[in-house]
Structure formats: structure tokens, C-alpha cells
Design a binder for these strands. Sequence first.
DNA 1: TCGCTTCCTGACCATATGGTCAATAGGAAG
DNA 2: CTTCCTATTGACCATATGGTCAGGAAGCGA
Lengths: 215, 215
Amino acid sequence: MTETARISRIRSGRRTDIRQQNERLILEAAEKVFAEAGFGGATMQLIADMAGLPKANLHYYFPTKEDLYRRVVQNIFEIWLDAASSFDAAAGPVEGIGAYVEAKMDISRRHPHGSKVWAAEVMHGAPVIQDYLETTLRDWTEGRIAVIRRWIDDGKMAPIDPRHLLYMLWATTQHYADFGHQIETLNAGHPLTDAQWREATESVKQIILRGIGAL
Amino acid sequence: MTETARISRIRSGRRTDIRQQNERLILEAAEKVFAEAGFGGATMQLIADMAGLPKANLHYYFPTKEDLYRRVVQNIFEIWLDAASSFDAAAGPVEGIGAYVEAKMDISRRHPHGSKVWAAEVMHGAPVIQDYLETTLRDWTEGRIAVIRRWIDDGKMAPIDPRHLLYMLWATTQHYADFGHQIETLNAGHPLTDAQWREATESVKQIILRGIGAL
DNA sequence: TCGCTTCCTGACCATATGGTCAATAGGAAG
DNA sequence: CTTCCTATTGACCATATGGTCAGGAAGCGA
């Protein structure tokens, strides 16, 4: 392939590239709009404008608003589950939970919109992802509970109810995304700096690890 | 109308009773609908049906949907602030934070809808209650931070960043309301029992109090 | 160039929804 | 009873929005 040909292909895009790129554009815009306005408050027109595409084009890639929403939620869910790997293959709670907190705080920082969409979905009774809660999330949770139980049995941490520990981990880490606006307001209106994010992560880690008697 | 007449009507007024009662009916229905559907997804018709009144009647008491929503959010905010009293007049973190956790867990249990509406409002950038965040909540927060600082100075707890401690308290307690559906799903589909709520409260208290070195 | 497929989009439609209004009922004061 | 104010409500309207569609543009293999 000649150089000019390659460039023109990148510019105008191959067919599959076009599809991928436009879907990505739409999903990014949708994530933001759904997070800021909720499912009911979001409009296809606004998402289209934000993605720089005509509205009818959205419906070409995503037949209905709900289809688009479902994809957004699924994307988040996958990112969310990936943080699980930090948990596994850890010798004890200090490494395992420490790494998990760091991973989840990182997600809160990098995907605040996604976290909000997820939160709203659950708050509304999980109309779209109920099956995920009952299968994937339940399995995931049971697995981690077993790990925590083992740590307790091995005397690596105090006998805390693993379930409530997990809820606390989710709550505290996701709070920095979901309530980011409130935190920013209480931070004199400024977003958290790198240093403040580090402090937040360290505070959470320290309180929880000490709280479960792992330090 | 004479002055006495007006007073007697206000005092004895069965009319004002009607107003009060209907406003309460509407606010209760609205809180639930806003929590379950979000502001954009909620419809005046649904709120009206749930309150057992014709839609036009809602607009008689609350001119616009936003007026109604604002009242709902304000109600929650007041309940929310009342939990502050648990914090004050405490000798140290064990009593103060312990009582605060209990109060907030109680609110999560008794007012799950309100908590969700508040969460959604903040997640959407607090379009309606931004001024409250910047005034009342900011002042409240500064006050508690001062209290926590004193406890630290008095050696009653470890030198934790008070701000992140507060965020953790808010996050963990409100999580049981906002993510109640997820928790219920992970609890084999059953709502938490009295005993489970007590366990949850104790777990949260214990982890945090131990985590900040107050035990 | 030709034919096939994918992609694009302005115009359009059916419906849902927030909000209005005029007419009416009903209790209380005089 | 009359008057006045509050409360009630069915009918109605303007608008916004999700979704459709037909026609055309553009990529691509042969």
C-alpha cells in the first residue's frame, strides 16, 4: 500500500473502522449525558450533538435509547469487574484490599460518568442489569467472601463480616465519583489535585486496613 | 375580612388542614417516584395517581414539577442535618461518631427514597441545591472538622484527615439506602432483617472506630 | 466501470408530558 | 341566604422527544 493510500484510509476510515469509531463516539457522549441527566432526562438529540452526529445516525448504530443505555451500563460493568484482579492472587488483606482500593479509586477518577450511571441504575432498581446482579456480581461477591474468610481463618485480619466489608469498600471508593460534585464544592470549588487523590486513597486504605485489624 | 376573622380561620381552619394533608400526600408520593424514576423519568401523572389525586390538583399545590422536586429535596436535607446533633455534645469519637453512624444508618433505613433523591441530585451536579452545598453543608462540615481536629489533638484518635473520614461516614451509611436494591439482591433477594441492620451498623461502627484508632 | 453493501441524514410522525383554564363545589364569615 | 375565598377537576394545548423512512452518498470487491 502506498503512503497516500494508507493516509487516506486512516482519514476516511475503513468500514469496520467507521463503525467502531462512531460507536465509541456515541458511547462516550451517551455515558456523559446519561450520568449528568439520568436515563429519563437524557435525550438522543443531546447525545447526538455531543457526539457531533445527526440524531438519525445514532438510531442507525443503536436502534433504541434503551439499547444505547444498556451498552453504556455493560461497558461500566466490565471495567468494574476488572478491578477484581487486584483482589486475587494476594497473600493477605494488606496487599489484596490495598490494591483493590487503589484500583477502585483509580476507576472513580477515570470513569466518574460510568460510576454515576451504574449508581443511578442500581438506585432505580436495576431495571436493565438485574440479571447481572443475580449472576455475575453474586458469583464475584461469593468468591471474594471466601477469600476474606480464609484471611480471617489464617488470623490475618479480625473476624469482620466480609459482606459489610465489601459494601464499605464499594461505598467509599465509588463515593469519590458519584458524589464528586459535592466533594469538589467542599474543596473550595476545585477538583481534587493529584496529591489530594493520593491522600484520599491513603486515608481510605489506612482506615479500612486498620479497621479490620490487618495492620 | 376582619383581623379576628382571619386569625380564627387560620387557627381553626379545616381548610389549612386540607392543604397540609394534601401537600403531605403529594410530597410522599413524589419522593418515591423521584427516587425510583429520577427527575426526568418521573411524571406528574404518576405522582398524582400514587397520591390519589387528579393531576391538575398537584399543580394547584405545586405550580411546577421543579417546585415539587425542590420541596422534596429540601425535606430530605433537613432530616439529614438533624443527624448532626448526634455528633455534637460528645466527649470523644467513640460516642460522637458511634452515635452519628447509628443515626445515619437509621435514616438510610427509614428514608431510603429521600436518600436516593439526594444522591441523584448531587450526581447530576446539584442543579437545585448548589447554594445549600455552598452554605449550610459547607458550614456544617467545617464545624465537624474542627471537632474531629480537637479529638485528634487530645489524643483520642489517630491523625486522620477529618474530611476523608466524613466522606467515608457519608458513603458507608448512605450506601445502605442508595444501593439497597443491590444489597437486597446479594442477600438472596430478601430485605435486610432487623438483626442484619444491627450487624451492618455494628460492622460500620467497628471498622471505622478501630480504623481511626479510637478503640 | 458496475453492482452490492454499508453508511448518512433531513423530514416526518405518533405520542407523552408539563402546564393552563374555565367552570364548579363547598365551607366559613357576615 | 349571600358573599367570598379556597379547593377541585375534566378538557385542552403547546412542545419535546423517541423513533421511522426514503433517498442518496460512499466504500469496496470484481
